[in-house]
Design a protein around this nucleic acid. Structure first.
Lengths: 189, 189
DNA sequence: GAAAAAAATTAAGCTGGTTTAAGAAAGGCG
DNA sequence: CGCCTTTCTTAAACCAGCTTAATTTTTTTC
């Protein structure tokens, strides 16, 4: 749980007792590559902190294809926020793309923890501000950049991450076909 | 300020003293139709609660066109979150689309208010959860729906809102050309 | 380390939506 | 009301990126 506590301490101050409460309240789980953390059809009851590895959040479209909505790696939180906060059933899958480990908590545990440790609500508020701003930036890029530009920009900005995940998953995340990624790569080499 | 306080009280409980602090801390501003609330190039120092009217957040692209990134109406918060939270200068404009009124606060006032009124940080945390979930849903629609489907879906879901704003602004928000909106409307009628 | 499965490449044909340009309609203001 | 500006429509040519399908390369499994 040290990685999670270190991440929280980047935003807020915690007492030793508070760290102890956090360490005993969160649950942990290890996942093999390709293992599913959450499935479509059920409520997403947990908010997951990625301590190791990486994940994709995706759905199956009407015509049976997978569309990747989000990617997450170490120090990110991943969850179907719509389902997690509303209690409605989820349309998404969350899958480990590598051998991974998460620390997680459910909605009522989280709310109870905010009562005991107000600094933790502050951490989540700041984290949500970052996540929301990042999500708006992503919308901005979807509008402003062509598929080719989005691919080149991603690979330029996160070269090591682009290596970690299969190309067809990155293509789907960027909203282009894997064939088109091949074309762009060929053109650029 | 009643509208803002009523909105906060949908999420958390406030004492009369806390309401008083909120009413005296927030600032208010009225804007005429088309008036600019925030401009590109400066830091977006405020977080704005829309008490009346509606707004668009947009940028000017390299080739001089306007791209609408966000729309907001009564009871929404609008700001360039990236700039507001980081203090970096903003790429966006925020403009009133109707005669409007906002209540606003700056970053340090907001943080100071969270110290005095912890329930307010809870309100913002919950609000950010909603905003973040909505933003992910929007990304999902950008991937799953065609331009035509996005237009029909928007008009079907928010018919009165679609009436309030010019068609070319809605087109830009949906990521399609105004000419194509005309085509879709013709086809459907 | 061979066989099977998964992922990436190539190429050709196709389409959803853009661009451009001009005219029509609607809205705002003195 | 009448003029001027803003918004919306129409149509034709065009293209970025998709689809399909076959082949090659890489990875996984036993």
């Amino acid at each position: 749980m040290e990685r999670l506590i270190r991440h929280i301490e980047k935003s807020v101050v915690l007492t030793p007792e508070e760290k102890e409460i956090i360490a005993t309240t969160f649950h942990s789980k290890k996942l093999a590559k390709k293992e599913i953390l959450h499935s479509e059809g059920s409520v997403c009851q947990y908010n997951y902190f990625i301590a190791k590895g990486c994940f994709r959040l995706y759905l199956i479209t009407e015509n049976g294809k997978e569309q990747v909505i989000q990617l997450g790696l170490e120090n990110w939180w991943i969850s179907d926020y719509s389902s997690y906060t509303s209690g409605r059933s989820s349309k998404f899958y969350i899958q480990a793309l590598e051998s991974s480990e998460v620390h997680y908590i459910n909605r009522s545990e989280q709310e109870a923890l905010f009562e005991k440790i107000p600094a933790l609500e502050s951490y989540f508020r700041k984290n949500l501000e970052r996540a929301y701003a990042a999500s708006l930036t992503r919308i901005e890029y979807l509008f402003l950049l062509s598929g080719e530009e989005r691919y080149l920009q991603f690979v330029g900005t996160y070269p090591e991450f682009a290596q970690r995940i299969p190309q067809y998953i990155l293509a789907s995340f960027l909203g282009i076909s894997p064939e088109y990624v091949s074309e762009v790569r060929k053109k650029r080499s």
